[in-house]
């Protein structure tokens, strides 16, 4: 099945006091690969800015924009049209020896690293090792994702942008970002190179053409078991036409959709919406 989707992602900020200067980077442009084709993408801001585009180390398209006129509100609208398809489980299922060979360990070293979002944890490692027993690497990815899906309860508000996999695990609940980080922590514990994916999820499997639904910013993982492939631990789902991917990295910090600095009062997000329309 092939879908054509329009994604309109709006983020609004309000500041306590006027902000004189702000420097920002948005990582909101979907990428193209064999599963997904980007047709058009645009970034607009209010107040208007001139964006500077570049591709970062991870291959993500970055829109950098600066503001110099005092403002109390900022709105960022990223819109794009992409074509997506599903992705069958890869036919290649490398052996544990392949996955842990010194070549793969060297090549994918960054995706085996511990980070502040994905820290090493003894107990979690033990669980992951238990899940690995008797399974191939590919089966292990599925089993770990399932375990994370069953272990965490989807709940907003418990964790924040800076919560680590361990925070979420100990709280027993979290959002997609936490599901992804926890999965990464366990996969890396058993030596499977794995990375964080940010993107969008269309929430209605049987949407009609032309129907606009409320989508969401989403995160899932990709693992290397002979080749890279994605899986969605939040929903315990393979990656399919409802997933639109934007960026990959070691963890959230490498792909954070909107980051920047400004001088002035504290900011609150007043509006975050993702409208997704199936066009074909």
């Amino acid at each position: 099945m092939r879908w054509r989707l329009r994604v309109v992602h709006t983020t609004g900020y309000r500041y306590d006091g006027p902000v004189a200067q702000s420097y920002n980077e948005a990582r909101l442009t979907p990428r193209s690969d064999d599963r997904q084709n980007l047709m058009v993408a645009r970034l607009e801001t209010v107040p208007a800015t001139r964006a500077y585009k570049y591709t970062d180390y991870w291959g993500t398209e970055v829109n950098a924009f600066d503001l110099f006129t005092p403002h109390t509100e900022l709105k960022v609208v990223a819109s794009s049209v992409v074509e997506t398809t599903g992705q069958p489980l890869p036919a290649v299922d490398a052996s544990w020896n392949d996955v842990r060979s010194s070549e793969s360990v060297d090549l994918y070293a960054e995706y085996l690293e511990w980070t502040s979002y994905v820290p090493k944890h003894r107990e979690l490692t033990a669980v992951a090792r238990g899940l690995r027993k008797g399974r191939t690497p590919q089966e292990t990815v599925l089993a770990v994702s399932k375990w994370v899906h069953d272990t965490l309860k989807y709940q907003r508000g418990t964790t924040g942008v800076h919560s680590s996999a361990i925070d979420a695990w100990q709280a027993g609940e979290g959002v997609c970002q936490d599901y992804a980080h926890l999965t990464l922590a366990m996969l890396r514990a058993v030596g499977i190179p794995s990375r964080y994916v940010s993107g969008y999820l269309h929430t209605k499997p049987n949407a009609a053409v032309g129907e606009t639904v409320v989508g969401e910013s989403h995160a899932w993982i990709e693992a290397w078991t002979g080749e890279w492939w994605g899986f969605d631990p939040t929903n315990d789902l393979p990656i399919a036409h409802r997933h639109v991917w934007v960026a990959t990295g070691r963890d959230y910090a490498d792909v954070s959709p909107l980051k920047g600095i400004y001088s002035g009062g504290a900011a609150t997000a007043i509006e975050v919406t993702v409208d997704m329309t199936r066009l074909a």
Binding site: Y54, T55, D56, Y57, W58, V105, D106, L107, A109, E110, E113
Partner: peptide, 18 residues
């Protein structure tokens, strides 16, 4: 050189790539 030699450098700044 092993890739890991580079990526594990504390001062390998990915911000400077490109």
């Amino acid at each position: 050189l092993p890739r890991r030699l580079i990526t594990s450098c504390e001062h390998f700044h990915r911000q400077a790539a490109g």
